[in-house]
């Protein structure tokens, strides 16, 4: 991995973000929402509407409006919310931090479960344990988030009454209570990812176990534990990094549904509120923040892969 590769990779992120910004801005222009009408209400006089349009610069050419918006966005200023009158940038960033907490916990839980599960299934390939985990995984892959969320709430909140069903408590307020409220959403999101990541770990592990170098390691007389941990696991987990990076994209989408169900004021929920209120600045800010997060996540995954697999030389 060379400095020039890193630089080019970061330039690619910038390019992606620019393309997304054009799309986001363009789509919000096409939406049947007139900012002036939204702000002043249906009964405003034509004079008042015209005056506001002039003040907001809505009559200016599109490219000028885009440049103005992008300039603000780059400095974190996405404008004022049409709904609350507050700056949307800070509002969305606070929401993002809540979503990232949920996503980070879900990823961590998923990896802790999926890797051992996949490994275990691979070592028992073709036996009952493998078949059962496979079946459960396919079930997990095919169920949508809201079904799993409902099942989880029915079991843990309703029947067992272990955990609160909905709501959000900031981590700074009460750590235990905050985690208790996050537990069910984290479980829902990670369950779905466990299903396909554990399948991936399983098939990669089986491939590696059949490779020449594992046979060579066995015939060199190395102990089974060393073959599994030193020789198999590392090579089997490499492709999983790519899958996890793609999952970040899923997380961003899946989290919208899960946040709505569990009433967590994360970025997904804010986005839904913004769309229903036709709050254009908030929609733009939310979409841009998600795009940047995704671009950065996949770049990080590429870098991690290059660091772990020395055969890959980005130059």
């Amino acid at each position: 991995m060379s400095a020039s590769w890193l630089l080019r990779r970061l330039l690619l992120v910038v390019y992606t973000v620019l393309v997304v910004s054009v799309l986001v801005f363009g789509i919000t222009q096409v939406l049947p929402a007139d900012a002036a009408v939204t702000l002043l209400g249906e009964n405003a006089t034509p004079e008042a509407l015209a005056a506001l349009r002039l003040r907001l610069g809505l009559g200016d050419p599109l490219w000028l409006q885009y440049a103005r918006w992008l300039g603000g966005a780059l400095t974190g200023d996405f404008g004022l919310s049409m709904r609350t009158g507050q700056p949307v940038g800070p509002m969305m960033l606070v929401a993002l931090s809540r979503s990232l907490l949920l996503a980070g916990l879900a990823l961590a839980l998923m990896l802790m479960v999926a890797i051992p599960l996949g490994l275990w299934a691979a070592l028992r390939q073709g036996r009952a344990a493998d078949l059962v985990t496979g079946l459960v995984s396919y079930l997990g892959v095919s169920l949508p988030e809201f079904v799993i969320a409902t099942l989880v709430v029915m079991l843990f909140a309703d029947r067992l009454q272990w955990l609160p069903a909905t709501g959000y408590v900031p981590l700074t307020e009460d750590v235990a209570d905050s985690l208790a409220h996050l537990a069910l959403p984290v479980l829902t999101v990670s369950l779905i990812m466990v299903a396909h990541v554990s399948r991936m770990v399983r098939s990669e592990t089986i491939d590696v176990l059949h490779s020449d170098y594992i046979r060579a390691a066995r015939l060199k007389g190395l102990p089974g534990r060393s073959i599994l941990l030193r020789h198999t696991l590392r090579n089997a987990l490499l492709p999983v990094i790519t899958i996890v990076a793609l999952d970040v994209g899923y997380l961003l989408g899946g989290i919208i549904v899960v946040e709505e169900i569990f009433a967590i004021p994360g970025i997904g929920r804010q986005l839904i509120v913004a769309v229903t209120a036709r709050d254009l600045p908030a929609i733009q800010a939310g979409a841009m923040i998600m795009a940047v997060t995704y671009a950065l996540a996949s770049t990080l995954a590429d870098i991690a892969y290059a660091l772990l697999d020395r055969r890959i030389r980005y130059d």
């Binding site: 020449d212 066995r218 060199k220 090579n235 772990l308 697999d309």
Partner: peptide
């Protein structure tokens, strides 16, 4: 077997590029 494999009987394989772990 552990006392024999690699200790009393060694083995050299056909293709050295696949008999070595690529990430070690």
């Amino acid at each position: 077997l552990a006392a024999i494999r690699g200790r009393r009987i060694g083995m050299v394989f056909q293709d050295p590029s696949t008999a070595l772990n690529p990430t070690l």
